[in-house]
Structures are given as structure tokens and as C-alpha cells.
Amino acid sequence: MAERWLEKMIDIFAALHYTKERQVTFAVFQLEGVARSWWNVVRLKWEREQTPRMWVNFMREFNAKYFLPLIQEKKEDEFIRFRQGTQTIAEYESQFTRLPKFAPELIMTEQRQIRRFVRGLNIEIQKDLAVAQLSAFSNAVEKAQRVESTRLQVRNFQAKKRAIPESRVEQEDKSIPPKFGRGTGGVRIPGISRVTSQGGSASASGGPCGYCGKANHTEDVCWKKARKCLHCGSADHQIANFPILLR
């Protein structure tokens, strides 16, 4: 019950962005019965010892009252060993803000909280944050999320690049007409008859070409005029960029 109450307070503080001082005031206002009597004793002690009215000090007193030392040690060890692993930054940050309630001394200052947060991040994200100026915990979380987003975009781009089907080249290969004879590019050209079995030259339907001057084809089917690949006839590339020649 005590742990659930403490987590509820922490969630409220995070949602309403309460200051450290206001957190104590709000939490104390929620105490009733025996818990309220306990707080009155703590308050008098704080006034006598001039203890700052800070949430970290409240948690220390609260833990000592409601949690056995063995439980506190176990939770403190869990927080020290806590790492991001397969979690997203948002998931990691949510867990990170809950665990320190049993070890407030580890995040007593803003800088100590930032250092421990960064230390638990995955190595690749830590590297990108190494040169960042992190003056506030919220700033550290935001920059970590930006790094995560950027790295995710890079991975997605690389995955799409690798996922380009190799069959694309194979399809282009299949689109190349079967070779025969020694005509232009050694391939079949629309409108040209096959080489005769006697080995004579091929007869074109209307050659020579009026555009390039080459034999065996006419101007209306001239690949050079249409700026097609002189190797395969494709309009998607020039012969200098023919896929097979680039292998």
C-alpha cells in the first residue's frame, strides 16, 4: 500500500511538473490518520535540525518508516543495475523515475540524476550524448529521444536499401532480347528480319537509318534517336549505365 501511494505521488508530480518543495507540500496534504501523526513528528524534527523541505528528504523518512531495510537494499540494487536494454527511451525513462524512490541519495542533485540516467542508456545512444550539454533531466530525456529517433530512421533507410529485390536486375536481364548475328549491339531490333541461315546480311524493313546512318534499321525505330540503351533498348538508362556491364 505504501509503495502504491508513493508511486501515485510520483506520477502526479511528473504530470503537473511540481517543484521539489511543492512535492512535499502536496504529499503531506494527502496523509491521513496514523500517517499524518507520523508526519507531524518528522516535521518537528526537520524544524529542529533545519532539514530542507525537499522531496528526497521526505522519501528517506518515508522509506525508513514503511519499508524494511532489506527491501530498500534490494530496490536500491535494482536501480543501480537498471539499464535500457530493449526498451524505448520513453519506457526506460518511465521505469527510471519510479525506481529511485528507494534510493533517493543516488539522484539527490539534478546532475547526479542526469549522469545515472545517461549511464543506463544503450552504448550507441550514450556516445551521441557524450558531447551534449545536459543542464536538466528533461533536457537529457528529450535529446536521448531525438538520438533514438534519428538512429531508427537510419536503420529503416538501410533496411529498405537492403530490401531492394535482387530480382530487379534479373527482370532487366530477362527483358533483353535474345542475341543473334552481328547486328547493332548484337541483339534483335524491332522491324529487322533474322539473319538468314546462309549467313547473309540481315535485310531491314526500310534502312539505312536517316538519323544515325547505321544499317539494319530505320529512323522511326532508331534507339539512338530515342535515347535508349544501345545494348538492350531500355529507355530507363544509357548503355554506359547498363546494369550487367556495371557488375
Rank of each mutant, 00 (worst) to 15 (best):
R115H: 10
R115W: 02
V24D: 01
V131Y: 14
D236S: 15
D11H: 11
A14W: 10
Q84T: 08
P177A: 12
A64R: 06
S205N: 04
T218W: 13
R43T: 08
T19L: 14
R162V: 06
E91W: 01
S234K: 13
E3K: 09
L44N: 11
E73W: 06
Q87E: 10
Q113I: 00
E3T: 10
A226C: 06
P104I: 09
Y66H: 12
E32W: 03
I89G: 03
S149I: 05
A35S: 14
G213R: 01
R188W: 14
E219N: 00
P100I: 02
V221I: 14
V141M: 04
Q133S: 11
K127P: 02
I189P: 00
D77L: 01
L44V: 00
V131R: 15
S193N: 10
E219P: 01
R194L: 09
G33M: 08
S135N: 12
C209N: 09
K101F: 12
G181N: 00
I71Q: 05
N241H: 14
A204W: 14
E3G: 06
A215W: 11
L245H: 04
V169H: 08
I89T: 08
F67N: 04
R194M: 04
Q158S: 13
L106P: 02
V187P: 00
E124V: 14
E124T: 15
E76Q: 07
R119N: 11
T19D: 13
F102Y: 12
E47W: 06
R146G: 08
F180L: 07
R194T: 04
R60F: 09
I125Q: 02
E78Y: 00
A35N: 09
P165L: 01
K101L: 14
E91G: 02
G213T: 10
T97H: 04
R81T: 07
P100M: 00
S193P: 06
E21M: 04
E110W: 00
R227K: 15
I10W: 01
S149Y: 03
D220M: 12
T88K: 07
K214Q: 01
Y66G: 01
D77F: 07
A103S: 06
A226T: 05
H231E: 08
L152G: 05
L121F: 11
R247A: 15
E61P: 01
F79R: 01
Y66L: 04
A215H: 12
Q126D: 14
I123G: 10
V131H: 11
G191M: 00
Q84M: 05
T51A: 04
R247W: 06
I80F: 03
F62I: 08
C212N: 06
K214R: 12
F180R: 13
W39F: 11
I189H: 09
F137V: 07
L129I: 00
E61Q: 15
R60V: 04
I107L: 00
G181E: 05
S201E: 15
Q133V: 11
V169R: 13
K20A: 13
G185E: 08
T19G: 10
T25Y: 11
L246C: 03
A235Y: 10
R146M: 15
R48F: 14
R146E: 09
V34R: 08
Q153I: 06
W223N: 08
P177C: 02
F26A: 09
E61W: 05
G206M: 03
G33T: 03
Q113S: 07
L16H: 14
A35T: 07
R60W: 05
A204T: 14
L70R: 10
E142D: 02
L31G: 08
I12R: 15
P190T: 04
H17A: 14
I12S: 14
